[in-house]
Simulated scan of single mutants.
Amino acid sequence: MAQFSDLEKAIDTLVNQFHSASADKSPTLKTDEFKNLLSSQMPNLMKGVGTDQAFGAILRKIGVHDGEGISFKQFWGLIQSVATEQFGRLSGQKGSSCSCILL
């Protein structure tokens, strides 16, 4: 059996956590399901999101409109954003940023 890398395991975890967050197993998450997913799996992100207005800003940032379900593609956009910010913090360099481009 193949031995998976830490990165492959992390990607698998992201996909599985997203899909298991849907109560009705639909391909999109309802806003409350998405909020619960972020609260349980990305608590550091949610620390700064104390209000519905701040959570709404996250939804708008990833392109979710009122009443719309959150797709995995939109979730992945959030992951990209968080990863880029995390890189800047961990690199310890002011002004450093990831120049990675996702197609």
Rank of each mutant, 00 (worst) to 15 (best):
M1F: 06
Q3G: 01
S5G: 09
L7Y: 13
A10F: 11
A10N: 10
D12H: 11
T13C: 11
V15M: 12
V15Q: 12
Q17I: 03
A21D: 04
A21Q: 08
S22I: 06
A23Q: 14
A23N: 10
D24W: 05
K25M: 09
K25W: 02
P27I: 08
P27S: 11
T28H: 07
T28Q: 10
T28C: 14
L29Y: 05
K30T: 14
K30P: 01
T31Q: 15
T31K: 15
D32N: 11
E33L: 08
E33Q: 13
E33K: 10
E33V: 07
K35N: 06
N36G: 10
N36V: 05
L37H: 07
S39F: 03
S40G: 09
Q41I: 01
P43G: 02
N44F: 00
L45Q: 00
L45E: 02
M46N: 05
K47V: 05
G48H: 04
G48L: 01
G50D: 07
G50S: 11
G50W: 06
D52E: 15
D52P: 04
D52A: 10
D52T: 09
Q53I: 11
Q53V: 13
A54P: 00
A54K: 14
A54H: 03
G56H: 02
A57N: 15
I58F: 00
L59S: 03
R60E: 14
K61R: 12
I62E: 04
I62F: 00
H65L: 13
D66Y: 07
D66L: 08
G69C: 11
I70C: 03
S71V: 08
S71P: 03
S71M: 09
S71A: 10
K73A: 13
Q74K: 15
F75N: 03
W76Y: 13
W76M: 14
G77C: 04
G77P: 00
G77F: 06
I79M: 13
Q80R: 14
S81R: 04
V82L: 05
T84I: 06
L90D: 14
G92V: 11
Q93F: 08
K94S: 12
C98Y: 07
C98E: 09
C98R: 11
S99V: 05
S99G: 15
S99Y: 06
C100G: 04
I101K: 15
